[in-house]
Simulated scan of single mutants.
Amino acid sequence: MPTLTIVIASTRPGRAGLPIATWFEKHAHAFDGFDVVVADLAEVNLPMMDEPNHPRLRQYTKQHTKDWSAVIDASDAFVFVTPEYNYGYPAPLKNAIDYLHQEWLHKPVGFVSYGGVAAGTRSVQQLKQVVTTLKMVPLFDAVSIPFHTQFIEDGVVVPNEIMETSADAMLAELARVEAALRPLRAESE
């Protein structure tokens, strides 16, 4: 079964990304189309880019980069769980993306975004520009959670029907696009 890695983009204390990602992880397990793993950038704790060589060369000198490379290399699809900070996405996510290059190629990525009235959608629009440069395929189907705090009770997400339906649509599309891209990944290995 292909591996889906859920990347939690926010690293700040008290973040909503953790309960939102926990809800989505359970939903993804129930979908039963992927082996699901979580990469919490707060735990990965990558320093700001500290490798001397360009990521395209894959000549990593730091163990944290080698470990991050192994996680992303083993993944077939991604979901980025991201807030919106000042119309953009969090710096730790950009840093984590920029650490690598080939490991991201020809893999689909979906988005679970959250925020206020815009539901994190502006951060997703910026992310789409970045991931396409890495030959990733961003999905149209997404989970966008406006005024997200209303869905968190005692640290647990209580989703509404729209969130559940959106998650189902995105997971189904991730499975289809991952299968379609698999031959391209095989060629580049």
Rank of each mutant, 00 (worst) to 15 (best):
S10A: 15
V157K: 06
R58Q: 15
L57H: 04
F140P: 07
L100Y: 09
M163G: 02
F24Q: 09
A30G: 01
H101D: 12
I162K: 12
P90R: 04
L139S: 01
D98K: 06
S113Y: 02
F151M: 06
L93M: 05
H27I: 07
K94M: 12
K66N: 06
P183K: 06
W68P: 14
P159W: 01
D76I: 08
R176D: 15
E164G: 01
T22N: 12
T5V: 11
W23M: 03
A169L: 11
L57S: 11
A77H: 02
Q126R: 06
E51G: 03
G110E: 10
D154M: 06
F111I: 13
Q129N: 14
M136Y: 05
F151S: 04
K135F: 09
Y89D: 07
F151L: 05
T5P: 11
D35Y: 04
V109W: 01
Q150A: 01
F111H: 01
R182A: 13
L171E: 10
V158T: 14
W104S: 08
E173W: 07
A28F: 04
W68R: 01
K26M: 12
D50V: 07
A167M: 10
P146C: 00
A96K: 07
E25D: 05
A180L: 08
R185G: 10
Q102V: 09
P92T: 13
Q59F: 08
H106I: 12
